[in-house]
């Protein structure tokens, strides 16, 4: 079973990710039994999915996080997809979901998620990190969990640090 890092712990991941192929109709695509992460378009086109309890939504870089605000309090999991680890839109989406829209459930990074991004992802509010299956061995992921925090006192305010360093700590002149 694939693994993910949740709140710093390595755990099994039972969720599967549904991706639309070219030409798929979001309203008509079948979401099989089991735990599924579905694209925003499917989530919006099939309102009945929300009642299933085992379906959650993933956002693409060009999706608008504000589109989820209505049901945000009831969502237990939102994933943000990184099509390439160099595509940084997901950081802003994560930060917006947490700080602007007040989302408190699991926020998961999926797609091309690499261990060298973990520090930035965590600071932008992601509490679940799901590198592609087979990308890392369990031992490598265990090692990487120790690396969730590269920088002990970052300068900026972020989801993780509500205040910037200059408000967090007293800095001597």
């Amino acid at each position: 079973m694939p693994k993910l890092i949740k709140n710093g712990q390595l755990i099994d991941d039972a969720w599967q990710t549904l991706r639309l192929a070219e030409g798929d109709d979001p309203a008509g695509v079948n979401v099989p039994a089991g735990q599924w992460l579905v694209p925003l378009a499917v989530w919006q086109a099939q309102p009945a999915l929300a009642a299933r309890g085992d379906v959650a939504v993933w956002l693409a870089g060009d999706d608008e996080p504000a589109a989820l605000t209505a049901g945000l309090a009831t969502l237990a999991l939102i994933a943000v997809n990184f099509p390439a680890f160099t595509d940084g839109r997901g950081y802003s989406i994560g930060a917006l979901l947490r700080s602007r829209h007040g989302y408190r459930g699991e926020l998961r990074a999926i797609g091309d998620v690499l261990r060298d991004q973990f520090d930035y992802l965590t600071r932008c509010g992601f509490d679940a990190l799901a590198p592609a299956e087979g990308k890392y061995t369990d031992a490598q992921l265990e090692e990487a969990t120790r690396q969730l925090q590269d920088f002990s006192e970052p300068y900026q305010a972020s989801v993780k640090h509500a205040d910037p360093l200059f408000r967090r700590q007293r800095r001597a002149a």
């Binding site: 680890f85 940084g88 950081y91 300068y155």
Partner: peptide
Amino acid sequence: RQWSTFHPEFAHLP
């Protein structure tokens, strides 16, 4: 400089 150093949201800009 300090604000932009390791800013978590802006490490992978376009």
